[in-house]
């Protein structure tokens, strides 16, 4: 019974339960739309959290990889008639190779220098997508054909919900596997002390590059899905603001907590929708909420709540 409450088993079951149960209470297509966006963002964040929360390496440019996946799918299926799955795979491989090549020099940087390097990378991607209008449609964006695979077209909110939910659950499962493995320990060791990690035989750069590539590829896959789901994409998907949004989801939910990343993605995807009621005050309130949570719940939502519950249980028992 105790092992059921390991994150890998209990948490995954809980997540599957939520994903399966949510349709019972989602009243209409609008809510499904928000839920699907939560799922896509959460998938990116689960990967990004491996990089930021576990390996301790910041990236302020991951929206770039998300957008590259999205545009790969859009261009290859729309302009070149590729099957969507092949386009999605090609995008993922392309982003994998690109991030691999870039990661070698960039991940030698530390702290604010790494933040600057990744930020620059994301902005360059965003500028290229804006400027290469012949390929991408420029700032106006481009349409994306719908997702067809194995003779079926994924259409309607229910099908998309199921697909995105499944992708999220599989991503979380694989991530949890990874964290509780020699690779995951090595990543966390790199976060704890690079010198000590190296002297236990951990090839620090190799693992940093590995986790960077994994998170970039996951972002690319989620980007491809998003492109097909939304049916239309713009370079805003690669913007600095979007990169920041992704990092904020991870940190708000709780660094080094996979379920924290999911919760953070949910909160920050739903919040702006909820804030539309505030109209002109939307940005003001959003900024204030961001500052407030980071100041008062410094560890993030999930770890803070988990700590509270643990204390409550302990004092209840005593």
């Amino acid at each position: 019974m105790a092992s059921l409450w390991q994150p890998r088993t209990g948490g995954l079951l809980a997540l599957a339960g939520v994903v399966a149960g949510l349709p019972l209470i989602l009243p209409n297509a609008f809510y499904y739309d928000v839920a699907i966006l939560v799922g896509i963002n959460a998938t990116v964040c689960v990967g990004l959290n491996l990089l930021i929360g576990y390996a301790g390496q910041i990236s302020l440019g991951h929206a770039g990889f998300f957008a590259l996946g999205a545009y790969a799918s859009a261009i290859l299926t729309g302009d070149h008639g590729w099957p969507p799955l092949a386009a999605l795979a090609a995008g993922a491989v392309g982003v994998g190779v690109l991030s691999f090549v870039l990661a070698q020099p960039i991940l030698k940087l530390k702290g604010h220098y790494l933040a600057m390097g990744t930020l620059g990378l994301g902005i360059i991607i965003s500028i290229v997508l804006n400027q290469e209008a012949g390929l991408t449609g420029g700032p106006d964006g481009m349409p994306v054909p719908s997702l067809r695979a194995l003779g079926h077209t994924v259409a309607g909110e229910h099908a998309w919900y199921a697909l995105v939910g499944l992708v999220l659950i599989v991503s979380v499962w694989l991530t949890l596997n990874l964290i509780d493995s020699p690779v995951g320990r090595a990543l966390q060791a790199v976060h704890g002390s690079e010198s000590a990690a190296a002297l236990t035989g951990v090839d620090v750069i190799r693992y940093k590059v590995l986790v960077f590539v994994v998170s970039a590829v996951l972002a690319s896959l989620a980007g491809s899905l998003f492109a097909h789901y939304a049916g239309f994409i713009t370079p805003a998907e690669a913007s600095f603001a979007r990169s920041i949004e992704l990092v904020t989801m991870v940190v708000l939910g709780g660094m080094a907590s996979t379920f924290g990343a999911v919760v953070g993605a949910a909160v920050l995807t739903i919040l702006p929708q909820a804030l539309t009621a505030f109209q002109d005050f939307k940005m003001l309130v959003f900024g204030a909420v961001l500052m407030g949570t980071m100041i008062f719940l410094r560890k993030g939502l999930v770890p803070t709540l988990a700590g509270l519950i643990r204390n409550r249980m302990r004092s209840g028992r005593a």
């Binding site: 930021i52 910041i58 990092v247 940190v251 961001l290 980071m294 410094r298």
Partner: peptide, 8 residues
């Protein structure tokens, strides 16, 4: 942490 301050 550095990231937290960046987000603030």
């Amino acid at each position: 942490s550095v990231v937290t301050l960046i987000i603030i």
